[in-house]
Amino acid sequence: MNNSQKWIAFDTILRREIRRFLRIWPQTLVPPIITIVLYFVIFGQLIGSRIGDMSGLPYIQFVAPGLIMMSVITNSYSNVVSSFFGSKFQRNIEELLVSPTPNWIILLGYVAGGMSRGLGVGLIVTVLSLYFAEFSIHSLPVTIAIVLMTSLMFSLAGLINAIFAVSFDDISIIPTFVLTPLTYLGGVFYSIELLDPFWSNLSMINPVLYMVNAFRYGIIGITDIPIVWAFLIVGLFSTLLFFLALRLLEKGSRLRS
């Protein structure tokens, strides 16, 4: 395949992915929006008004970046894991496996699809959050870079989960038992300054903490950790996950018998 043909193959996968999540919008776009609105109403307005300030900011302003990031993470991940596993389950992944499309194009196509949904939902949630909280962008480059890298990383993780999954249970285990606790304990709702030193130090091994803080820094200019660490960690994880996913596709793990 020449480069032009590779581009067509990538574009085809990406368009198919976007068409898929738009086709099933009541499953893919509406629930995250409702969830986030509820978070804003409950944690931001009802409870938040009693909590007071967090890191010197009104609570709703403090949680807004974390909630946006949370929707980016969960939607990037769940789009790729459900789409790729669905293709395995229906066996239409074979359409790609019999074609000359290189594995890295398949990988990039699915990841770009996951990022499209993650970033799309993130954008909708950002627009909604402006109704509940006021904020301006502190650093646009940091905001864009960290949100792109986070979406990339979780799309890659979703693909790896889907490759290993053999049943629908397998695609819900990681989001339920790993992703949700990491996100909830990743400084979305609180500053780690509030924690005892033990829990504060333990939080430092949670990669989501770095992403949420870097994003919060990009938007409102405050962070619990040095943001350079956030970029290093997300960059490192994304690189490792990319090569792991590519290796699995090259080997045909759980895809070719």
Partner: peptide
């Protein structure tokens, strides 16, 4: 065995398959 996405339309399935071979839309 049937191995296409049963939720997609025949025309979309064919055009996408062509795309995987680098064929213009």
């Amino acid at each position: 065995e049937f191995n296409f996405n049963q939720f997609e339309k025949p025309l979309d399935i064919l055009v996408a398959q062509a795309g995987y071979y680098g064929i213009k839309a």
